[in-house]
Amino acid sequence: MAPSAITETISSTLTLKGQEKPAEAAQQAAVEGKEMTPLEAISHGMLMPGIPTFPTYTEERRHILIHMAATFRFFARSGFTEGQSGHISVRDPEFPSLMWMNPLGRHFGMLTAGDMVCLDIATGKIVGGNTSRPANAAGYLIHSAVHKRRPNDIHAICHAHSNAGRAWSVFARPLEMLNQDVCNFHNAHAVYARYGGIVFAAEEGEHIASALGDTNKGVILLNHGLLTVGSTVDEAGFMFGLLDRACAMQLAVEAAAANGIPKNVISDEEAAHNFKMASEANVLYREAQPDIEYEIEVAGGEDVVARGFESLRAVVAP
């Protein structure tokens, strides 16, 4: 089938999810005694905008792939590279049966929107995007299994072999709620306590998807690394960085505790409240924007990170 010819409704203005209320929404909610949304609660003065929506699929796809490339550049700056290992996938906004992934063997810090490869989730067939490089076979097996298991709430997946993530993974233990930030994973992360080797078969990808479960935002993979998910690539990328830093903090705390220093862990009640206020999709999208914007600025602007996008096509197999 030819590239998409679906009629797109053109809107003269870009709208923002989570910004339907006026700027005074937070203050008004407080006056009326209503429960504020997480964005209302954190915004003082004007209301912080949430996840953007776009008048056309092309504009939405461009935004997603630019932010995907910027997330990879954040990964590179954070030291999440290990040879050819690591991958991010994002479900296409127009064709939910397709996903975009990074090509095999290109450094995270060099990726642009035009580098991304488009694959059919069900079959693994490359159906569009950059066809000059292969995709990562192990990556496809992992990501496709997760996308198939959770087609409605997961639109992006991040996996990499970070140092702290690999170090903490050897204990096959979940994280403790040691600080305010890690509460984003309160009752929302799992441990895959089995090592099945490099993923060269669909079965191992399915095991990882099963370990992640139906509601978790991340999973610690024994002797392997970390995997996080999100409703946007921004969310999944921010959560990956947070999960890796949480692993590093847990390792440091365990070392101190081994010398007799007692730990103070956040209570389940407080952790649950923190999770409620900090883990909503629009808030997590906003959490990612400082690093996304930094990477775009350092790269030389949005057009640099978007390079090659105009030549990409997402094609639905006949």
Score class of each variant (00 low, 15 high):
Gln250Pro: 06
His207Leu: 08
Met239Val: 07
Leu226Gln: 13
Val219Glu: 10
Asp244Glu: 15
His63Lys: 01
Ile88Gly: 02
Ile121Ser: 09
Phe171Ala: 03
Pro22Leu: 03
Phe75Ala: 08
Pro93Arg: 03
Pro134Asn: 12
Gly196Ser: 10
Gly18Ile: 01
Leu242Trp: 07
His189Val: 11
Gly237Ala: 00
Pro174Leu: 00
Val304Cys: 03
Glu203Pro: 04
Ala122His: 15
Gln180Gly: 00
His159Gly: 02
Arg245Gln: 14
Lys276Glu: 13
Ala258Leu: 02
Pro151Cys: 14
Gly300Lys: 06
His186Gly: 01
Leu227Gly: 02
Arg166Cys: 07
Lys148Asn: 15
Gly301Val: 08
Ala172Asn: 13
Thr131Trp: 03
His44Met: 00
Ser210Arg: 10
Glu269Asp: 14
Ile6Ala: 12
Pro290Ile: 00
Glu24Leu: 04
Arg307Tyr: 07
Glu40Gly: 10
Ala201Gln: 15
Val229Ile: 04
Ile296Cys: 01
Trp100His: 06
Thr232Gln: 13
Pro96Met: 00
Ser169Thr: 12
Phe75His: 14
Ile292Gly: 04
Leu119Ser: 08
Gly205Leu: 02
Glu20Gln: 11
Ser11Tyr: 13
Val253His: 08
Thr56Phe: 06
Glu254Asn: 09
Cys183Ala: 13
Thr37Gln: 02
Ala314Lys: 05
Arg194Lys: 14
Val315Gly: 04
Glu295Thr: 14
Gly308Glu: 07
Val191Gln: 04
Val315Phe: 08
Arg245Ser: 15
Met36Thr: 10
Cys118Tyr: 04
Ala5Ser: 12
Asn223Lys: 12
Thr112Gly: 06
Met177Trp: 10
Lys276Phe: 11
Phe95His: 12
Val219Met: 03
His273Asn: 06
Ala172Asp: 13
Phe309Tyr: 10
Cys158Pro: 04
Asn163Leu: 11
Glu254Cys: 01
Ala202Met: 01
Ala281Gly: 14
Leu111Met: 00
Ala256His: 05
Ser97Glu: 11
Ser169Cys: 07
Leu178Ser: 13
Glu59Asn: 07
Ala193Phe: 05
Ala248Lys: 12
Met68Lys: 07
Lys217Pro: 02
Leu251His: 15
Val265Cys: 03
His159Val: 01
Ile296Gln: 03
Gly241Ala: 05
Ile142Gly: 11
Ala271Gly: 09
Ser279Gly: 10
Val191Tyr: 07
Gly213Lys: 03
Gly205Ala: 07
Ile261Asn: 11
Asn152Leu: 05
Gly50His: 04
Asp268Thr: 11
Ala69Asn: 06
Ala2Thr: 13
Ala138Gly: 15
Ile292Met: 14
Leu175Gly: 15
Ile6Trp: 09
Thr9Asn: 08
Glu310Asn: 14
Arg307Gln: 14
Tyr294Gly: 04
Ala202Gly: 09
Ile66Trp: 04
Trp100Ser: 04
Lys276His: 12
Leu227Val: 05
Glu35Gly: 07
Ala190Pro: 01
Glu32Phe: 09
Ala246Met: 03
Ala288Cys: 01
Gly45Pro: 08
Ser231Asp: 15
Asn187Gln: 15
Ala299Val: 05
Val170Lys: 05
Ile208Glu: 09
Val298Pro: 01
Thr123Ile: 01
